[in-house]
Amino acid sequence: MSGRVRVLTLGDMGADEEKALGAHFDVVAAADAGAVGRDEAVRGIVTRGRTPINAALMDRLPNLEAVATISVGYDSIDVAEAVRRGIVVSHTPDVLNDEMADFTVGLLLATLRRFPAAERHLRAGRWRNGEEFPYSPSLRGRTVGIAGMGRIGGVIARRLEAFDVPIAYFARSPRPASPHTYHDSLLSLASACDTLIVVLPGGATTRHAIDAEILKALGPDGVLINVARGSVVDETALVEALQRGEILAAGLDVFADEPRVPDALLALEQVVLLPHVGTATHHTRGRMGQLAIDNVIAWFDGRDILTPVPECAGLDRRRPART
């Protein structure tokens, strides 16, 4: 495959992604960054976004030019280090907004109405034996807070408006176009609502942003939905708050140390635990994979990257093509 640009894939690629990449590049695959040795031929990376791409990996790939993650979040990538080295990083925003919003509303309702537990009750034959499933909480009368009113948060709000519930949000600055109540801190938002949806970006600045204090403010009827990153929630504090009844329930798609889920969470009936599947439909995973691949193709064709991360906006103009 000499003459072709070598691209490293990290994490499982679907059959469509493998085919599309194979048509353009000399592809080498690794399950995670730890399995990658020194390789001077690698010029691009396409990643699932679940393994760290840091200075140590960049040292082993001295000719790396472009990293494309098949995700909207890019907290797994040391972007500052990438920028310093002139490596352009791209992600897949927007194509997953609808999917994430559908999923978040589904998870919220599944948590409130206790679907998995109700199904367990039924499938175990307890209903048949005359045992009524306990009354569940309701979405009715609740106030929903959205922590992080970015692209995805905005679509979640639009879905929930049709359910006729009051909505409030936290963001770094008010969204002038939003009809909903703005809070300038997470604590203020958590105090004003009983149902908190977390869609903050991951990374160092939001690490454990949802801590014991926020959960206490959410209150004993409180429901926490996390579809962002496990790192955003202090998982130990969450487990304690659930165990003590300081909040009512939680719906979690992300965890601090995926795919490991703490035993203390598995022991709780009032939590819904999902294996990080927010975007996991054929339709959207296909579009995300295609966009990530289009980004690396554009770069190595000498065109602009389509969807660089904001920090790389100055780098997204192709340097003169190497010959």
């Binding site: 109405r113 109700a118 039924l122 009524e132 009354y135 569940s136 309701s138 009715r140």
Partner: peptide, 11 residues
């Protein structure tokens, strides 16, 4: 499958 809980909320 749900055990007929359409209206089975406390509220």
């Amino acid at each position: 499958l749900a055990p007929h809980v359409g209206s089975a909320t406390r509220e």
